[in-house]
């Protein structure tokens, strides 16, 4: 039986997008520098949408690795 609780490493990967897109808002909520023609805050969020997906993809690999039957737990 796989453990239902996600591993601490995967949870940390999930925490990264929260820090980047939510808690740090005073640091990146500004217009300049405009990148690729976008205000900085919008640009930042777009980049982090992609990076969030990446974080989850890594967590997915970790979780499915844990789940393979017969594989010893790390």
């Amino acid at each position: 039986m796989p453990d239902r609780k996600p591993s601490a490493g995967s949870l940390l990967l999930g925490l990264i997008p929260f820090v980047a897109m939510c808690f740090t808002v005073p640091l990146w909520d500004r217009i300049d520098p405009m990148l690729l023609g976008l205000p900085f805050n919008l640009f930042w969020l777009i980049v982090w949408i992609v990076l969030s997906s990446l974080c989850l993809a890594i967590a997915y690999r970790r979780e499915s690795g844990r789940r393979k039957p017969g594989e010893p737990r790390p």
Binding site: P6, S10, L11, G14, P17, F18, M21, C22, W48, I49, S52, C55, L56, A59, Y60
Partner: peptide, 10 residues
């Protein structure tokens, strides 16, 4: 929306 999907993953 992005963070809702992060929550949903777990």
């Amino acid at each position: 929306l992005t963070l809702a999907y992060v929550v949903s993953f777990f």
